[in-house]
Nucleic acid binder design. Structure first.
Lengths: 239, 239
DNA sequence: CGGGCCATTGAGCTAGCTCAAGCCGCGTGG
DNA sequence: CCACGCGGCTTGAGCTAGCTCAATGGCCCG
């Protein structure tokens, strides 16, 4: 039994997805796993491939995107460490309809499909875990679909509101938090261009709803932010 | 034991989702079920509610949509008979982020969540079935997300191409099939306006790629249809 | 002090939306 | 048999959000 195998098993025990396996199952699974390091920009799975592994990151980040003719990417999925990905297409033997690429230098653990399928059949708790994972993805995707049906400024408002809820500190009258990424990144994440993002920010700031200082955001009126994030226009202050 | 209960159990046995239950389990589940008829236009679950039932249609159709201020609906999901819906939010006790509404007069079977959760824990095959269902939804949603990132005419081409593959008959040089719905419906389904749909049809017809005769479509050049459905513009015949 | 890298700002352009007419086919009543 | 009306498609004419392209303005770091 290699120490590498044990290290992987050890890591897997900390990942919710695999937490319900017992030690033996986890060690067996780890024995079939492969750990690799990948550089940012490398493609992990190409469009149209059927993934033969389920992946988890130990470190780094990956994105899933669709490539349009002309080279434009629309990024739809972001995964950080501890979040398994490619689960559904791998288990369902289904072609990937986009590409998965390393976004930041990453340590990738690849787990072959077959042992996982067997575990699903033999371990009911694990099967339930997988079901839960897939259902969470579904809900997340519907959210995403909803988000993308909103206008750019509403999408930004939604994002800011969520962030304000989860990670802000009171600051004077308002709530203050740090974007934690470059605005260009955020634009990507929201699926809009940096220019549009910048304009949306100015709009919110001119309306007095937020104050932008570099990457620090102060939310002055969470109330208005919610209104906007529901897709109402600012001047809809009638009734 | 009522005959109604047996009728529902009988029906459920024909639904893939429940096919792996044994007769006793199915009867028990049917005992808790409620069958109702609903008129088109009625809302079944409102935005923000946590569904307490998993639903299957015996008849009719439902749609899931997001409501935007101004009353515009964007329809994202369509379910016909035999397809369970509201599964994920119900089992995960999660607020619905859109509204589910009856699209055509329907007979709805509602199954309370608790017994289903219990079955997932006691019946491993069923747990796997749920996982499979959820993973299929995930894959479907990603497809949808991809579709919606394409331009209107590409989206139409994708749709026509799929339909041509699955339900067409050779006809002269090309493949012929019937839309099977009004063009207004199709526009809704594709998430575009009837006007844009009409213009896209004319475009394809002028390009000689398809011939439209009422609701009959003849695909003259499947090759070009694929090219377009990948998002390439027609005049991209350079290279 | 100069050189990058973001971010912002301005100026077009385009796809798809809305609004408003026409048009076609079909059922209904005279 | 024809006139009428109605629903659904098509067509035309603007309008708008968000894109691209290009120029400018900080800001940080050597």
């Amino acid at each position: 039994m290699s120490s590498k195998q044990e290290a992987i098993a050890q890591y897997l025990s900390g990942v919710t997805f695999f937490s319900c396996l017992d030690d033996t199952e986890r060690l067996d699974l780890a024995a079939t796993a492969r750990e690799t390091t990948k550089k940012a920009g490398q493609a992990l799975i190409h469009e149209g491939e059927i993934p033969t592994y389920v992946y988890v990151l130990k470190k780094g980040a990956v994105v899933g995107f669709f490539l349009h003719p002309g080279g434009k990417k629309s990024i739809v999925l972001h995964y950080g460490p501890g979040k398994p990905f490619a689960v559904e297409p791998a288990l369902m033997s289904c072609r990937l309809c986009g590409t998965i690429e390393i976004a930041e230098d990453a340590v990738v653990v690849a787990l072959p499909v077959e042992p996982i399928k067997k575990l699903m059949e033999s371990n009911n708790t694990f099967a339930n875990q997988i079901a839960k994972h897939a259902m969470t993805s579904t809900i997340h995707l519907i959210d995403l679909l909803k988000d993308s049906s909103f206008a750019a400024s509403a999408r930004l408002s939604r994002y800011l509101f969520r962030r304000a809820l989860e990670s802000s500190k009171p600051r004077g009258e308002g709530l203050c938090f740090d974007l934690g990424m470059k605005k260009g990144m955020l634009a990507d994440y929201l699926g809009i261009t940096p220019e549009t993002l910048s304009r949306s920010f100015s709009q919110l700031q001119n309306g007095g709803i937020i104050t932008v200082k570099g990457s620090k955001i102060i939310v002055n009126s969470a109330r208005d932010l919610v209104r906007l994030s529901e897709g109402f226009q600012e001047q809809d202050s009638i009734t």
